[in-house]
Write a protein that binds this DNA or RNA. Sequence first.
DNA 1: GCCAACGTTGGC
DNA 2: GCCAACGTTGGC
Length: 164
Amino acid sequence: MPAAKKTRRFWLLKTEPGTFSFDDLMRAPKKTTGWDGVRNYQARNLLRDEMQEGDGVFIYHSSTDVPAVVGVAVVARAGYPDPNAFDRKSPYHDPKSDPDKPKWFQIDVRGVEALPRPVSLAQLRETPALEGMNLLRKGNRLSVQPVTGAEWRKVRALGGLKGD
DNA sequence: GCCAACGTTGGC
DNA sequence: GCCAACGTTGGC
């Protein structure tokens, strides 16, 4: 019997390009960075429990002139405790997070490639196949979101990437 | 800058 | 456990 095939899943991470952009990721050592500072329980649960090495990641630029999915990345390391929470000098410090029982988690993300054509929020909204996309739901603020396989392929295609 | 939506906090 | 007040997110 063949070994169970690990299912690759897909995610979307929001970032404000003024703070950390997709280009910043591509310029980072090994194109990799710790996705730290997430302080929302729902997002924390995804980082800690769900995201696995090798999963696909869209990088989305928020709070900018043209909010858009701008690039593709991959989970380079599954969830581990966010050390900023223990660092009193960090802006992400949380005195309630105990190193023995960490409250906040992060993953590592490695940049893969920019979308030849970034897919704007407006374009996502006018694409019928993406109607159910998490990002487009009213009032949604989650900075870490699951993306379905169909959404993944559709957005990649809109962005000008071949294959999946 | 405005404001809707949502999460968190804290008094009771 | 309820819920008002407050803070944050993020599009416009």
